[in-house]
Design a protein around this nucleic acid. Sequence first.
DNA 1: TGTTGACTCTTACGTTACGGCAGGCTTTAT
DNA 2: ATAAAGCCTGCCGTAACGTAAGAGTCAACA
Lengths: 253, 253
Amino acid sequence: MAIKIKEAAELAGISIRTLHHYDHIGLLSPTHSTESGYRLYTDKDMETLQQILFFKELGFSLKRIKEIINSPSFDRREALQLHRKRLLEKRDQLDQMIVTVEKTIQHMEGEIHMSNKEKFEGFRFDEFKKDPYEQEARERWGDQAVDESKAKVYKMSPQEQRNFTENMNEIYRALADLRHTSPASEESQKAIEEWYRFLNKMGSYSLDAFKGLGQMYVQDERFTKNIDQFGEGLAQFMCEAMAIYADNKKKRK
Amino acid sequence: MAIKIKEAAELAGISIRTLHHYDHIGLLSPTHSTESGYRLYTDKDMETLQQILFFKELGFSLKRIKEIINSPSFDRREALQLHRKRLLEKRDQLDQMIVTVEKTIQHMEGEIHMSNKEKFEGFRFDEFKKDPYEQEARERWGDQAVDESKAKVYKMSPQEQRNFTENMNEIYRALADLRHTSPASEESQKAIEEWYRFLNKMGSYSLDAFKGLGQMYVQDERFTKNIDQFGEGLAQFMCEAMAIYADNKKKRK
DNA sequence: TGTTGACTCTTACGTTACGGCAGGCTTTAT
DNA sequence: ATAAAGCCTGCCGTAACGTAAGAGTCAACA
C-alpha cells in the first residue's frame, strides 16, 4: 500500500527534492521506510500532503503549516483570519506600488517621449474638456465621478494633458490594430485591460460601469464616430471586448 | 564633504548593515575611504542611494537596480513596463488567494460554528430573498448587478445561507458596538472595510456605489429601521463611515 | 599618556523553500 | 552479472539583509 518517493512526488505534482525537504524539516516524515532507508509513503501520508499543499497554495509558510498540521487543537479559523488580514495588507502595498510605477512611467514619458504626435488628430484633448456628453455622463455615472474626473483633468499641466491624450491615443491605436481579431483573445483582452486601467486613473469605474460604457460606444453614434476614426468597426469591437473583460473579471471574484 | 557610514545611514533612513551589503554586492561602493578603511560617502553617493531606494520601493530587485544604475543606456521605460506587468500578475495571484481563504473560512464556519444564532433575528435572510427594495435597487445599481447578486443567493445551500446571514449579522454587531465612536477612526474604518468586502462577495460595488448605498441607509427609512435594530443611530453612523471609507480609498488610487 | 566609549571594520551564520549537484548505496531489468 | 534506474545524505546557492562576534580606530577626558 505504500509508494516510493518518485511516485508520491508525481502524484502530488511536486519534486522529490521538496519531499526530502519536508522530511528534513519535520513537516512530513513518511510513516514507514525500508531497511535500506527508502522512504515509503502511505495513503495517510498522501492525505496529509494534500493538506499541506492546500495551505501552501493559500500562501502559508511551512512553519505555520507545521503548527496547523501537528496540533489539532490549533485554531485553524483564527489562523485563517489572521492570514487573510496579512494578504489584504500585502495587496494594498502592491496596489500602491502599481500606482507609483504607473505615475513614474507617465512622468518619464512626459520628459522624453514628446515628439512624434499629431499623427492621430482625432479625439483631441480639448474636446474632452468641453465635453458635449457631460450632462449624459452625469446621469449615467453619477455627479461625483464626473466632477472628480474633471477636476483631475483641469489640474493637469499642459504637458500632462498632452501625455494624457497621447496615452489614450496609443491605446486606441493598439486596439484598432486588433479590431479584426477575436475580442475574446488573450491579446485583445490585454489591450482592453490597459483601457480599463487607464480609465481608472481618471475616476473609479466599476466593472459594471465599464461594461455599460462599452455599450454606449455602439448605441450613441457620437461616440461611435469618434472612436471609429481610429479604424472602422473599432467601437463595436471595443464594446464586445469590454463586456467580455468585465464578465470574466467578475467571475474570478 | 564626505560623511561616515552612520550619518549616511541615518540620512537615508536605512541600516548600516544595508550599506555594508550594498557595498558588498557592488551596488553602491562609496567613492572614497580613509586609510583605516572607513567608508566615506560623498553627496553624489547619496544621490545614487536615493535612486536605489526609489527603485527599491517600486519592488525592483537589487540585481535589476544595479543594471539600471550602472548602465545609462539601459532602457528604464521598458524595465518599468515589464515590472508593472509582473506586479499586476502578482496582484491577481493575491486576489485569488484572498478569495480562496475567504471561501475556506466560510466553509469551516459552516461545519463548526452553527449553534449560537437567533440572537439577532432582525434582517433575516428570507427577507432578503423577497426583497421589497428590489425594484429600487434595480434602478440604482443596474439590472445586471441585481440579477447577479440574486443568482448567487439562490445558488447557496441552506447551510450557506445561514452562514451568510450570520456573517452579515456579525458585521452589524461589530459596527453597532462602535456607533458612538468616530466613524473616521481606524477601528471604525476597518469594520466598514469588512462590510465593503462582504458586499463585494455578492456583486461588484464600486466605491461610489458603496458611498451611495450608505446615503440610502439614512434617506430611506425602511433601511434605517432595519439597521437600527442593531442599535439606534447605527444607520447614520454607517452612512458617515462609508462615505469616509470611499473617499479615502479613492484618494489613494 | 592612558583609558574609555563611540564608531567602524570584516567574517560568518540564520532566514525561506527549495534547486541542483556529487558521491555512493540499492533495486530492477536484461 | 552488469548496467540502468532509483534512492540516499550532505552541501552550496538563492535575496536582502539581521544579528552577533571579535578586533581595530578615533576623539575626548583625566
